[in-house]
Amino acid sequence: MTINQLSQKLDLKIVSNTPKTTEKAVTGVYSCDLLSHAMAKINEGDVWITVHTNLNVVAVASLTDCACVLIPENIEIEKQTVERAIEKDVILLSSDKSAAVLCYEIFKLIKDL
């Protein structure tokens, strides 16, 4: 499933669009707000759910090759983070749902693939 398809199915908002949204495959989901911990555990292709919206999130996302970053509960995303994400080809998504609900819904979608 591509990120485009995922965001349509779960009504996610694409905050930073890059050419990858139609290419990159979503293969897993991971949620953690400790950056070094996330860095060690995120697998390539994961949707990474975090409440942080600072610049370091873009660095971690790009180093781990996660599919995209998903910010839950409509948390406002810092403007400089959006700009940096576009520059680094990192996809940021946003949703009004909680991290727990998003994990559940994404997991349900990809386990049938």
């Binding site: 707000d33 400790l34 070094s36 911990h37 860095m39 060690a40 999130v57």
Partner: peptide
């Protein structure tokens, strides 16, 4: 508050 401080940096480097 920015998400650092898990205390995993050095072990990540080692790994």
């Amino acid at each position: 508050e920015m998400g650092f401080g898990a205390g995993m940096g050095l072990s990540n480097i080692k790994k």
